[in-house]
């Protein structure tokens, strides 16, 4: 087996990109953003001595009177309507605790779940006892943010057939800020794989599902082996998403698809090499730019 070994010092420092944006207002913690009291305090700022200070490092964003500092990376800050990919970590009383990469664990109420066999039936005692049969610890789900509690934790729901338990596939974790907000986050890509770009930075790559399984809410698991062709397509997609994330490229259907297309001239495993990643990403970027 051929093994490709390279030293850490051979790593190319990508920081030397010629892009510098002098206009962006950069701040670091403790910096005074403004002494003007007419502004409202947003995320990433705090008031002290009547001055507005930054509490994180990042760019200052101003929306009317509201001043926020947006840090480079952060944990996921959920908003109602966001599509998330999440993992069940605990089964509780009429609720599941799920990890959504946010600051606190999110909850999925039994009442917010479509149960097999009828969307709108009453939740019985029986269902409570059966909860672990529906979703158990470690299961992955796709869901939507239903509401945000006062302490910042999220309440999710899966009351649409497109949400629910996820079967076979690959989970990727990227920074939440890299996922572009779109109308839909579920894509069946023409390359032969489907992708869920969760707003929380969790990305799910799965083989394309046929219509009937999709409508079961994932409660019927398809455990048949996936065809090798599909598996390769999924793996390639994974590496492409990874490459884009590495280069801080926004993730959305087009960017992922373009990256996939640009990568086809390389083998899947070559995509892990930094220089090839660079090239693929660069080509993707050019295509995106060409489109405007």
């Amino acid at each position: 087996m051929a093994v490709d070994v390279r030293l850490a010092c051979a790593r190319v420092d990508r920081k030397e990109l010629p892009f510098t944006n002098d206009q962006a207002h950069l701040v670091t913690p403790g910096d005074v953003i403004t002494t003007d009291t007419g502004f409202m305090r947003g995320h990433g700022t705090y008031m002290e001595d009547e001055k507005l200070h930054a509490s994180v490092s990042g760019t200052v964003e101003r929306v009317n009177k509201l001043i926020c500092v947006k840090p480079l990376k952060t944990r996921y800050n959920g908003e109602v309507g966001d599509v998330v990919v999440a993992r069940v970590i605990e089964v509780g009383q009429r609720r599941w605790k799920v990890d959504t990469n946010s600051r606190l664990d999110s909850v999925l109420m039994l009442s917010s779940v479509n149960l097999p066999g009828g969307e709108l039936r009453r939740r019985s005692e029986e269902d409570e006892r059966m909860m672990r049969d529906y979703l158990q610890e470690g299961d992955l789900i796709s869901a939507e943010v239903q509401s945000v509690f006062s302490d910042g934790s999220l309440s999710l729901h899966t009351r649409s057939l497109k949400y629910g338990k996820l079967g076979q596939g690959i989970l990727l974790k990227v920074s939440p800020s890299l996922v572009k907000r779109r109308k839909t986050h579920f894509h069946n890509l023409p390359c032969g794989a489907s992708i869920i770009l969760g707003n929380n930075g969790y990305v799910w790559i799965a083989p394309i599902l046929n219509e009937d399984t999709e409508n079961t809410g994932g409660f019927i698991q398809n455990l048949e082996p996936v065809a090798a062709v599909d598996r390769e397509a999924m793996a390639r997609l994974r590496n492409c998403v990874l490459a884009l994330a590495e280069h801080k490229m926004m993730l959305f259907d087009t960017s992922v698809l373009y990256a996939y297309e640009e990568s086809t001239k390389y083998t899947v495993k070559d995509l892990l090499k930094p220089e090839i990643m660079d090239e693929v990403v660069e080509l993707t970027r050019q295509r995106l730019e060409a489109e405007g």
């Binding site: 892009f19 944006n21 480079l72």
Partner: peptide, 13 residues
């Protein structure tokens, strides 16, 4: 920060 933002900027445009 500058170098990271430069990256991000370039990808957004």
């Amino acid at each position: 920060l500058t170098s990271s933002i430069a990256l991000q900027d370039s990808s957004v445009t």
